[in-house]
Design a protein around this nucleic acid. Sequence first.
DNA 1: ACCTTTACGTCAGTCATGTTGACATATATT
DNA 2: AATATATGTCAACATGACTGACGTAAAGGT
Lengths: 164, 164
Amino acid sequence: MTDVKVGPNPLFLRDEELIQGIELLFYAYRDFTGDPDAVLAEYGFGRAHHRVVHFVSRNPGMSVAELLEILRITKQSLSRVLGQLVERGFIVQKKGTRDRRQRLLYLTETGTDLAASLAEPQKRRVARAYREAGAEAVEGYRKVLMGLIGDGSREAIVRSFRRR
Amino acid sequence: MTDVKVGPNPLFLRDEELIQGIELLFYAYRDFTGDPDAVLAEYGFGRAHHRVVHFVSRNPGMSVAELLEILRITKQSLSRVLGQLVERGFIVQKKGTRDRRQRLLYLTETGTDLAASLAEPQKRRVARAYREAGAEAVEGYRKVLMGLIGDGSREAIVRSFRRR
DNA sequence: ACCTTTACGTCAGTCATGTTGACATATATT
DNA sequence: AATATATGTCAACATGACTGACGTAAAGGT
């Protein structure tokens, strides 16, 4: 850590690359999450609502527990946001048939519209970046991001992607 | 939005691919930002402190305005966090010599140590992902992330990277 | 048929981090 | 001398996270 640059250190450059990799992630995420804010503000929602709507949109009929696992927040945190979305008619909860303790989550028609208009600016941004970078770069982008994801969740994500 | 695939879209620009690109960014950022939490907790600091320490570490002598521009938060938000870091001896502020209104930011020795131990787990994560994905993938990762960054900041970031 | 565990919800309090708006001070620029 | 800029500060508030405790219904094991 406190090893000062001792002569021509090949590791120094490598360190710099890693930090740039970190900063790129920060900057991209910063700008990317800002995109839907205008839409959210129209509805009086925040980014937490966006995340919920997004993942329910992608996984209709998912359980609360599955959603919590993805978001990595407590149920108390989720409950407020989810409650508002249900109350205002963007999400409905249906008892599971196999396990009736579960409250499976679905978007309403309004919720689907919201999800679409939130996704739109982000898709546009990603599409532009993909187009400018080219298919091969996209492959690398995916590969590295996949490697950045913790071992615990990677498998589930890969599987969910393959189901498409 | 509701434009179904009109004509032959290149595969990597299909809707599904774009959404996966979005989700990968979410998951990677989620896990990546969690890494230093343990270290932060030891000091009673949060992620906001981390960001400040990181960018001051990378840009010693930067002005408050520059930091605000990077973080994209208000000066009132920054002031609390920055104030704590100064008060507890991780950052010092020195009047600019060219422009004495500026309070230029520097890490103390303690601050440098903190920065290093916060960066460490993140660098390790990035290093692993880079290693597993290979140099070509890393090139693609960088290219795409750079494209995701808003036009306003991209240039400054490219320049800051080149200065290294 | 019990007993325990699980899935989910809720109440209550707290904390971290962001926001707006108003105003103050020192210094630079015109 | 007047204005603009860099920074700081006070105050009030919103969002989204947390912990801890407790409740209910349904599932699962004995």
